[in-house]
């Protein structure tokens, strides 16, 4: 056990734990956009900077392991000022779309901007994704991308790479022009993306959105929410049911404990609880590349063989 002090509070932590996790375990929240408990720390957003042992040079809480006798301050005026600057840099490159953004209410950028009193401002400088929000990739029936909102935290890339056979997303370009690309910067449709929605589940902002939830116009705070487990396989990935009036939609929750998430599972859960069954799509290799094509629920859930068997057995027994 390691003993350290965070904001004057004496706490204990396990060897190898990060300052961020140690703080969280004791109810001290440190703002972070790129941190995810299920992913390796990227330490790229730099929001979780904290003061360590009174030194001027701050350290990232997510990437710094705890040490015996460490004295951590997470909320000094200096640290808060630096975080404000970082948030301002992000907002200067983010469209003012909170009114209509699907992510409003659970967007981390919105949350921290509110907390730190940082606002959108007009400026003549460059904007990576343009000044107005717009979906930059609408090729997938399941996922909408809006690169103008992307803060390049890299979580989507990391979570996509957890499963080796996926690894569809990666960074492309560099510096200010860095972007997240699917395969060789293709659309989600043309890429090898399997629509598992792991990326959507971890995106902290409105850059990756669940299309079917969006189309139902349900935002989380106005819905009754319930977590359910997928029964398609033994992993039991988690989904959230959002219910508003007569409408019921589902969305995948962040994959944890090795759960993979997959399209089949998603459709399985959808078929089970959605208020209406909306046409499923599957990806097919065609001469013109990969295309999403309409399919039937029976085919999507791979029920055809089972159904055939049931039908034939039943018709035989009635003979």
């Amino acid at each position: 056990m390691i003993k350290l002090t965070i904001n004057g509070q004496k706490v204990t932590a396990e060897e190898g734990m990060s300052i961020l996790d140690a703080a969280l375990a004791h109810g001290i929240e440190i703002p972070a956009l790129c941190h995810d408990p299920d992913l390796k720390p990227e330490s790229s957003c730099r929001l979780c900077l904290v003061e360590v042992d009174g030194r001027r040079w701050p350290r990232v809480a997510c990437g710094t392991p705890v040490r015996d006798g460490m004295v951590v301050e997470t909320e000094t005026p200096e640290i808060r000022a630096t975080r404000r600057e970082i948030l301002q840099l992000l907002l200067d490159n983010h469209p003012n779309d909170c009114l209509t953004c699907q992510k409003a209410g659970e967007c981390l950028l919105q949350k921290y901007a509110y907390e730190y009193g940082v606002t959108f401002r007009t400026h003549d400088g460059a904007r990576r994704g343009g000044e107005r929000a717009r979906f930059t990739d609408t090729s997938s029936p399941y996922i909408l991308r809006d690169e103008s909102k992307c803060i390049l935290c890299g979580k989507c890339i990391s979570t996509c790479a957890v499963l080796n056979e996926r690894s569809v997303l990666s960074f492309a370009g560099r510096g200010f022009e860095t972007k997240v690309a699917a395969d060789r910067d293709e659309t989600l449709e043309a890429s090898t993306c399997v629509s598992c929605s792991r990326c959507v589940a971890v995106c902290p902002v409105g850059a990756l959105i669940d299309r079917r939830v969006r189309e139902k116009k349900i935002r989380p705070w106005e819905a009754d929410r319930q977590t359910i487990q997928c029964k398609a396989c033994e992993y039991g990935c988690e989904y959230e049911v959002l219910e508003k009036g007569d409408e019921r939609v589902i969305r995948p929750l962040a994959p944890s404990e090795g759960r993979p998430l997959c399209l089949k599972g998603r459709l399985y859960v959808e078929a089970e609880v959605s208020s209406d069954l909306r046409t499923p799509f599957k990806k097919e290799e065609t001469e013109k590349g990969r295309k999403f094509v309409r399919t039937t629920w029976i085919e999507a859930l791979e029920l055809d063989r089972i159904l055939d068997r049931i039908t034939s057995t039943e018709s035989e027994s009635t003979k």
């Binding site: 730099r46 600057e85 890299g154």
Partner: peptide, 21 residues
């Protein structure tokens, strides 16, 4: 520097561009 920034961390990616501007 703005051209050579790798783009990984926020302050360098965004900050060098703004300083250049």
């Amino acid at each position: 520097i703005a051209d050579e920034s790798c783009g990984k961390c926020t302050p360098c990616r965004e900050g060098t561009k703004r300083m250049l501007e």
